[in-house]
């Protein structure tokens, strides 16, 4: 599944990953997802390093980014993406548990495209994930250089 990967989901919590994938399955979008378990893996994917060295070229259509991550946190990933000319156009959606204003402000200052607080209620959570997946992977026109659906 890691070949196509139009959605790069950066999420350290396996349960959140499973719930999100379950939600995306309903629109057959689960196959489009690559999961990175921390900030470092996310950057490895983007730069085609480490275990992602053999992946196809191209940027993901969207980066779903948790803020609290092991090793390199979400804001740092966002900062590095925005600072790199090859990556800066990737749409980034922060997907977090945090309602905190300072996280939100910091994310927007770093140029995030959307900030979504994960709802506790499952239906809402599923809907939020589905809508995000459909919007960014299907409806939105990704910037040039993104992986295209065949």
């Amino acid at each position: 599944m890691s070949i196509l990967g139009r959605i790069l989901m950066v999420e350290d919590d396996p349960k959140d990953v499973e719930l999100s994938l379950t939600a995306l399955e309903e629109y057959n979008l689960a196959n489009e997802v690559v999961v990175a378990r921390d900030g470092e893996e996310a950057l490895d994917y983007l730069y085609k390093r480490g275990k992602f060295a053999d992946r196809l070229n191209g940027n993901p259509a969207v980066l779903l980014l948790d803020l609290k991550l092991p090793k390199i946190n979400g804001l740092e990933v966002l900062q590095r993406v925005r600072a790199d000319e090859k990556l800066m156009m990737i749409p980034v959606v922060v997907l977090t548990s945090s309602h905190e204003e300072k996280d939100m402000v910091a994310s927007y200052k770093l140029g995030v495209n959307a900030y979504v607080v994960k709802p506790v209620e499952f239906h809402q959570f599923v809907n939020a994930i589905k809508e995000l997946g459909v919007f960014w992977a299907v409806i939105n026109q990704p910037p040039p250089g993104s992986i295209r659906k065949n």
Partner: peptide, 21 residues
């Protein structure tokens, strides 16, 4: 408060989510 907002909500979301599944 920050850690409550982050860390307490995640397991809760999982409980609700998997129960619903």
């Amino acid at each position: 408060a920050y850690s409550v907002s982050h860390d307490l909500r995640a397991p809760l979301r999982h409980m609700a989510g998997f129960t619903q599944l």
